[in-house]
Write a protein that binds this DNA or RNA. Structure first.
Ligand SMILES: O=c1ccn([C@H]2C[C@H](O)[C@@H](COP(=O)(O)OP(=O)(O)OP(=O)(O)O)O2)c(=O)[nH]1
Ligand SMILES: [Mg+2]
Length: 618
DNA sequence: CAACAGAAGCT
DNA sequence: AGCTTC
DNA sequence: GTTG
């Protein structure tokens, strides 16, 4: 249970605070303290001069809202750390409503001189370079009736359903009439290909779960949410390109009918349950909780867009367990019994089950802004922070970014090859790229090995990129690095196979190279730029490197979490034991190497039953 | 109440 | 040190 | 958001 924030739907107000101690100067015109200075725009542009803003929630803890507050200050606003009568504007998150605000302020109504506006207000004003009329419908806050002198409190309180947590604000700026026009994205939306998760059936009847399974499971649970939940939208396909970020779709499936009887209900059942990750959800029909899941997914998506990483994870965890739950969950108690579902989610689940919807989300999501943000975040080299800035700056298309925004070289490449980088690579083409690398390398020194890892090694029918492990028996890293950097890469560039360098390892340390490659010739894939990753690994580390580079990411995290619970540490070089961790799991000693060379032995030491790459999908 | 994997490269 | 990616 |  979390008590940390007492606030939620019913009771407490959102955790504002900010000010109190020292976080912010009382009436900050700029908050000193941590980001020391916010540079104000020239005096004549300070459209918010002498305006006093109070945000709701009023904390700058979350990344996106922080940005917005900073922006307002930049344009002359004073940020009131506490509510008082001098406030001129209250800027409320989309997820908030009038009722919540009143409740928090302990008031029956808002003084008429204070303007209540929604979160997009500051950005709009900045866009138009002037103070806009707060009464415009676009700035309306739910439950706040502008026409009524004293808006009834009831309006809002009535809609106590699932409220969004005071989250970091969602970034928004001017509203584009035209969403993002990506001319760069031909037909295939940069989106995720709908995945057909099918690679699930675990075979492994033979390997009954050993004890450690439980631990691994636990670890796995913690980790799996991280992955972008694969939403399978079979039917609703066309409708939404969102799916958050993931190119996560693997549909890796073991070639043959791996389906084996799942005999042994007992442990096998248990075992199975834990590894739901390799679960297929093939039919959209078969899960009784689809409705609930859909809504929770929207919530997760919302929090994701708002930059609330951990809450997003929590939602995804819950979604994951719901997805594997065979029966429809109706009540709070029922939900509470499930792993990764606590009191808050349990209540929400119950409510969703009955009402089948979530009102809070209505205004907070699916706004055009979200689409823009999504689009920007899919630019290679741009993450949440950068995409938010762009959105806040008012950009709405990729073209606009190219024209007006400052881009890093990688971001420029990311935009120029936006469609390419966001499309899946057919398995056969992955092979071609791998072969090109291998062939060139063998010409330099036939003793080298190239292993294509990533989703390819897991058996996926298509991949997001090409992950190559480059190694050589009895060879150390410096030598491998030298060959790769001094010979292989230049050679592949000369052959016009490599087209760009996105991240290179420095000459004397480092072990990876990231760039873009392209197959010449005349196939359907000709001319498409692909991201390619080279991982340079000395022979002693091959096992650990294989685990790392084979993934999937969720699997890795779960394994690493498990290791840490055993006083060990797993990374791409090896498994270490007797790791000393200080406060906050901080690594104090490297620990001593246990195993790095043999993939299987790492599993053994960790007490995890071996699973082939195809089964490492969580 | 802190942890939720662990690391590398770029800006 | 923050951001982004693997 | 949930968990140890
Ligand atoms: O956050 C991450 C991302 C990736 N990896 C590992 C696992 C993953 O399998 C491998 C390659 O990364 P990539 O992003 O290419 O993922 P993938 O599994 O190959 O999927 P995709 O088909 O999108 O390339 O690196 C991690 O450990 N953590
Ligand atoms: Mg990959």
């Amino acid at each position: 249970m979390s008590r940390a924030d007492s606030s939620d739907t019913a009771k407490g107000p959102p955790p504002l605070v900010t000010t109190s101690s020292s976080a912010v100067t009382k009436k900050a015109v700029g908050k000193r303290k941590r980001d020391s200075e916010i540079r104000l725009v020239p005096d004549d542009q300070r459209i918010f001069k002498s305006q006093r803003f109070y945000f709701f929630p009023n904390s700058d803890k979350h990344p996106a809202r922080k940005l917005r507050i900073a922006k307002a200050i930049e344009f002359g606003a004073t940020w009131e750390s506490e509510f008082n009568e001098s406030v001129t504007h209250i800027v409320a998150d989309k997820s908030m409503d009038y009722g919540l605000l009143l409740k928090y302020l302990k008031k029956d109504a808002l003084p008429p001189h204070i303007a209540l506006v929604s979160e997009n207000y500051p950005a709009e004003c900045i866009t138009f370079c002037r103070l806009l009329d707060p009464r415009q419908p676009q700035f309306k806050v739910r439950g706040y009736d502008l026409s009524a002198a004293a808006p009834p409190i009831s309006s809002a309180s009535s809609d106590r359903s699932l409220k969004l947590k005071p989250a970091p604000d969602s970034v928004r700026a001017r509203q584009p009439e035209t969403p993002v026009q990506d001319d760069r994205v031909p037909e295939s939306p940069p989106t995720v290909s709908t995945e057909d998760g099918e690679g699930e059936e675990d075979r492994n009847p033979s390997a009954p779960p050993i004890e450690s399974t439980a631990e691994f499971d636990a670890a796995l649970k913690q980790a799996r949410d991280l992955r972008h939940v694969p939403l399978d939208m079979e039917e609703d396909s066309g409708s939404r390109p969102t799916s958050s970020d993931g190119p996560a779709t693997d549909d890796e499936r073991p070639p043959a009918g791996s389906e084996l009887d799942r005999r042994k209900k007992g442990k096998a059942q248990n075992y199975q349950a834990k590894f739901q990750c390799m679960h297929k959800h093939t039919g959209s029909d078969e899960n009784p909780n689809v409705g609930t899941i859909a809504i929770l997914q929207q919530m997760a998506e919302y929090y994701n867009q708002v930059g609330d990483e951990w809450r997003t994870r929590a939602y995804r965890k819950a979604i994951s367990t719901l997805r594997n739950h065979p029966t429809k969950v109706w009540t709070r108690e029922e939900a509470l019994a499930l792993p990764q579902i606590g009191g808050r989610l349990a209540s929400k689940i119950e409510e969703i089950a009955y009402t089948n919807r979530l009102r809070r989300l209505d205004n907070a999501k699916a706004e055009p802004q979200d689409q823009v943000l999504q689009t920007f975040m899919q630019v290679y080299g741009a993450g949440f922070a950068q995409a938010s800035k762009w959105v806040n700056a008012g950009y709405t298309t990729l073209d606009e970014l190219v024209e007006k925004a400052e881009l890093t070289p990688n971001q420029r490449i990311g935009i120029d090859h936006y469609a390419d980088f966001n499309s899946r690579i057919p398995r056969a083409e992955v092979e071609q790229h791998g072969n090109a690398v291998r062939k060139a390398l063998h010409k330099i020194d036939p003793a080298f090995d190239v292993i294509v890892g990533g989703s390819y090694r897991r058996g996926a029918k298509d991949s997001g990129d090409i992950d190559c492990i480059i190694t050589r028996p009895n060879t150390d890293l410096p030598h491998i690095r030298q060959v790769v950097l001094d010979q292989l890469v230049p050679k592949l560039f000369a052959k016009r196979f490599l087209m760009a360098e996105l991240a290179a390892t420095s000459r004397d340390d480092g072990s990876k190279w990231h760039g873009a490659s392209c197959i010449a010739g005349s196939s359907s894939s000709t001319g498409i730029w692909r991201r390619i990753d080279l991982l340079l690994v000395p022979s002693d580390e091959l096992g650990a490197a294989l685990i790392y580079f084979t993934g999937n990411d969720i699997f890795n995290r779960s394994l690493r979490l498990l290791a840490s619970t055993k006083g060990m540490r797993l990374n791409q070089r090896g498994l270490y034991k007797d790791v000393i961790r200080g406060k906050g799991r901080e690594k104090l000693s490297e620990g001593t190497l246990v195993e790095g060379r043999d993939e299987k032995r790492i599993f053994e030491v960790l007490g995890v039953p071996w699973r082939p790459p195809e089964h490492r999908i969580c």
